[in-house]
């Protein structure tokens, strides 16, 4: 059995917030008609979660479902369960127009932890998104750009956020976040 590693291979950085590789994360892309009862039932059966509404993420334990676009959701699972869950979903959706694909190794997840205002600030420096606590609460899921590449972000709680980007730009995104989180770069806008 090969020893699977994530793109960032456990990298960490300590600035005024902590930037760290969130490790191996199972991810399944599901595309289809999010208005279809069969599809919604299949997601619930496979994950135990209800498909979220526009720009939301619902999570419980180590499972989560995120709204990506009007016809796409991203399902987060434990890494070693992604294949099985994807197969269950595909089975449940047979005959339905849709696509299920495991994308765990195509993407990477980075975690930010720190003081509530500081975590927001590190992201706000990089993305054209209103990150004020009123506008972006835990439970929101936002696809945007991080400097020059596409990414998605959400807050697990007030002191930690996770960022998803493509594996090919993992190093770029990690370094961006490190520079943004460097000591001495605090703006204290959200504090």
């Amino acid at each position: 059995m090969s020893d699977t590693v994530s793109a960032l291979n456990g990298a960490t950085f300590q600035g005024f917030v902590t930037v760290e590789d969130a490790g191996l994360q199972g991810m399944i892309t599901l595309r289809g008609d999010l208005g279809s009862a069969k599809l919604l039932a299949a997601v619930t059966a496979a994950t135990g979660l209800v498909t979220p509404s526009q720009r939301k993420i619902v999570s419980q334990g180590d499972m989560a479902v995120a709204w990506m676009s009007p016809d796409e959701v991203l399902i987060l699972t434990p890494y070693d369960q992604a294949g099985t869950i994807a197969a269950t979903l595909a089975q449940a959706l047979s005959g339905e127009h849709g696509l299920v694909q495991t994308v765990s190794d195509a993407r990477t997840v980075v975690r930010l932890t720190g003081a509530p205002g500081s975590v927001r600030e590190v992201l706000a420096k990089l993305a054209p998104v209103d990150l004020s606590p009123q506008a972006f609460e835990p439970g929101e899921f936002r696809r945007t750009r991080l400097a020059q590449v596409a990414g998605a972000m959400w807050f697990d709680d007030t002191t930690s956020a996770r960022i998803i980007c493509f594996r090919s730009v993992a190093d770029y995104v990690f370094k961006l976040l490190c520079i943004s989180a460097e000591e001495g770069g605090e703006v204290d806008y959200f504090n």
């Binding site: 526009q54 720009r55 676009s69 009007p70 054209p128 936002r142 945007t144 750009r145």
Partner: peptide, 12 residues
Amino acid sequence: PYCGVDAEETEL
């Protein structure tokens, strides 16, 4: 109109 975001030019 699809995701309801007020997106600025660099996201588009």
